[in-house]
């Protein structure tokens, strides 16, 4: 009797949790459904199209779903003070001397390039150079470090 009752009640709780969980993430665009949106962006990147811009929401989506590698185009000094969590640093001015890092960039994964904020050009130039080097799936996050930081998204520093 106890076990039958417990099984019935557990089944009800699991069904309710499935319904609530998927409804909530569908409405808010979080979790499971965020990955669907990110997958669409990743698909665009994987086709090898030329670099194209993404906004903060798309950058965050790729970050949340681990769908992209963030590439910081700023000077090492700025990068060391703070950068998007898990980003790698390829300063535009050091592009030629960083060939080893560039060769190690994952193929088939979206690269999100950023610099300080929307007024800087190094992200655009670095994205173009990466594309010329045959790396597809490059996205440019124009909002950059300032936009990311102002929205209190995950960061880290190397100091």
């Amino acid at each position: 009797m106890k076990y039958k009752q417990a099984t019935r009640e557990s089944g009800f709780i699991i069904c309710a949790a499935l319904l609530l969980g998927f409804s909530y993430t569908f409405v808010t665009g979080k979790g499971f459904f965020a990955s669907f949106k990110a997958a669409a962006v990743v698909h665009l990147g994987a086709t090898g199209l030329a670099p194209s811009p993404i906004n903060l929401a798309e950058a965050k989506m790729l970050f949340d779903t681990d769908g992209a590698l963030f590439v910081d185009a700023r000077h090492y000094f700025d990068f060391r003070r703070g950068h998007i969590k898990s980003a790698v640093n390829i300063p535009l001015s050091e592009f030629d001397s960083r060939q080893k890092t560039i060769a190690g960039l994952p193929r088939g994964k979206v690269l999100v390039v950023y610099c300080d904020e929307s007024e800087c050009n190094s992200s655009v130039e670095l994205a173009a150079k990466l594309y010329e080097d045959g790396i597809g799936g490059v996205r440019i996050f124009f909002g950059g470090w300032q936009d990311w930081m102002n929205n209190k998204l995950p960061t880290e520093s190397s100091q």
């Binding site: 709780i13 949790a17 609530l20 969980g21 979790g31």
Partner: peptide, 9 residues
């Protein structure tokens, strides 16, 4: 997506 809701319920 689902586990936290099971915990809550």
């Amino acid at each position: 997506t689902v586990l936290p809701w099971i915990e809550l319920l």
